[in-house]
């Protein structure tokens, strides 16, 4: 079974920033979270996956086809939520639905309508007057309505309150009940990714810092809190991140050396690897 997304040696150069070389693989039927700080290259990577930008080097395959192909059949299979929703601001939900229905052979108008209802999206209000959260919900409804095999989402939960994020999470879980469907999403809200993701790719300054099964990462790393002397006593290779305070130290450690370490969340992992990193 071909990977949902397969990236090999991807490089994209800009004036002040280079993305890559990046290798990435999302097996079919899985969910991958793309994390990293602002400017790490997440949106650029997603733009490349969507064919909005062309790579300087390397190859990208989506559902077994090259990403560059302007094939309607491929686009039909990918549901997209961009960082900027991109719908005409003077149109209402139903009109946007009509506009998109001609754009996707597999468009399910009934599904779109029912999703809009589920999201309580006002029928009479024009898109420009939607709140940030509503815009996101409409984008997600549109992405799901044409029954894609792959969802690619750039910050889909940004601007949503916790209740809405919970609703969206359920939607994603329902989406992947089918083993031939996959999701790639980038997000700052790591608590969401924490739950649903099977794989995590950690992007930093255009390169992949970490990539692998989310569970694997959580089994590899742990958090240890202790006195200065206790933490100092740890072997050099064990400590990947260190935060020193007057009241004790916190270290990101490799469980291999410190099996007693506590579980670490993705957020802590990211902050410790970036902000409190200990040099290699």
């Amino acid at each position: 079974m071909a990977d949902a997304i397969h990236v090999n040696g991807l490089v994209k150069k800009f004036k002040h920033f280079t993305l890559g070389p990046v290798d990435l693989a999302l097996p079919q039927g899985c969910v991958m979270g793309l994390i990293g700080e602002n400017g790490a290259g997440k949106s650029t990577l997603i733009n490349l996956l969507l064919g909005l930008k062309r790579p300087d080097e390397g190859s990208i395959e989506i559902l077994g086809q090259p990403a560059q192909s302007d094939s309607a059949a491929l686009r039909q299979q990918i549901g997209v939520v961009l960082d900027i929703p991109g719908f005409p601001s003077v149109m209402r939900a139903a009109e946007i639905g009509k506009l998109l229905s001609a754009g996707f052979p597999g468009w399910d108008g009934e599904k779109f309508r029912s999703l809009c209802e589920e999201f309580s999206l006002p029928q009479k209000t024009t898109f420009g007057n939607y709140s940030r959260g509503m815009k996101m919900k409409l984008s997600i409804a549109a992405a799901l309505a044409h029954d894609p095999k792959l969802l690619i989402l750039d910050e889909p939960t940004g601007g949503l309150d916790p209740v809405a994020r919970d609703e969206i999470l359920d939607l994603f879980y329902n989406f992947i009940q089918s083993p031939d469907r996959s999701i790639l999403l980038s997000s700052h809200i790591l608590s969401d990714l924490e739950k649903i993701c099977d794989y995590i790719a950690f992007l930093h300054e255009g390169k992949i810092l970490l990539q692998g099964e989310k569970d694997g990462l959580k089994e590899t790393y742990g958090l240890l809190r202790g006195s200065r002397s206790e933490i100092d006593a740890l072997p050099e290779e064990a400590v990947k991140g260190l935060r020193k305070t007057e009241s004790g130290d916190e270290a990101l450690v490799l469980r291999r050396y410190c099996p007693q370490a506590e579980p670490v969340t993705l957020e802590e992992l990211m902050v410790y690897l970036l902000r409190y990193a200990k040099g290699e």
């Binding site: 039927g29 969910v31 879980y173 992947i176 009940q177």
Partner: peptide
């Protein structure tokens, strides 16, 4: 997959 959804964890788990 259903279990993963109910427990809100990864399918791989």
């Amino acid at each position: 997959r259903a279990l993963a959804r109910d427990l809100r964890i990864s399918v791989i788990t």
